[in-house]
Amino acid sequence: MHSWKAGYMGELLLLWYRRKIAVFGIFSVVVPILLAASFHALQPILGFMAVSQSFPLTMLGIYTSVWIPLFIFMAAADLFPQEVASRTLKLALLRPNSRFQVYGAKTAALATGIAALLVLLGIVSLACNLFAGTLAGFAETAAIVKAYIASFVSMLALAAVFVFTAQFFKSSSGFMAFSIVLYAAAKIAPFLSSAVAAFSPASYTDWYKLWLSQTVSAGKLTTAFLFLASCSLLFFSLGYYKFVRKEV
C-alpha cells in the first residue's frame, strides 16, 4: 500500500508540475468568468442569456462535452504515450510497485485530476453566480452539486475508454489527434444510428441531466449508472491487459 501511495502521489505531482496542466487550470478559471462577464454584458440585448441561477448547469454542459474530455486526452497522453516516447515509463516500472499498481496509480491520478477540475469549474461557476447576484438557494445548489457528482461518473467512464486507447500509442501527439477524431465520431454517430447512443460512453456526457429531472425513474438512473460503471471496469481492465504486456 505504501508503494502504491508513493506511485499515486508521484503521478499526481508529475501532472501538477507539467506546465500545460497549469495552463489548462488557469483557462478553467478564466473561461467561465469571461463567459459570465460576456453574458452579463449582453443581457440587455439578448435577455435570456443572462447569468441565471442555472449558469453552473449551463456551463456543465460545455465542461462535460468539450472541456473535460480535452483534459482527459491531454492527461492520458502525458501519463501513457508520452512516457513511452520519452522513455520515462521505466522510472515508474523500476520501483517496488507491480504493473497493476503503476497502472492503477496513473489511472487514479487521472481520476483525481478530473474530480479536481470539476470541483474547480463548479466553484468558479458558482462564484460567477455570486458576483452576478444570482446565487441559487440551498435546494438549487444541492441539485448543482448532485449534477457535478453525476458528471464525474460519466467522465470516469470516458477516461477509462481513452486510457485503454492510449495503450496503443507510442506518441502523445498521435494519441491526441486520434482521440479527438474518435470522440468527435462518437458524438456524431448517434445522429446516424440511434442504437449507438445506448452503448457509447460518449453519449452519456450529459447524463447529469437525468439526475435533475423529476420524472426520470430510479430504474433508469440505476441502469445508466451500471452501464457507466461497467464501461469503466471493462476499459480499465482492457487497458491493464495491454499495459502489463508493455516491454520498455
Binding site: Y17, S86, R87, T88, L94, P96, S98, R99
Partner: peptide, 18 residues
C-alpha cells in the same frame, strides 16, 4: 515483483527523466 524489487536500485539503458 514488489517484494523482489524492494531492495534493488537501478539505472537501465540511457538516463531518461521528466
Amino acid at each position: 515483483f514488489e517484494q523482489g524489487m524492494r531492495h534493488v536500485g537501478c539505472m537501465i539503458e540511457s538516463a531518461d527523466f521528466h
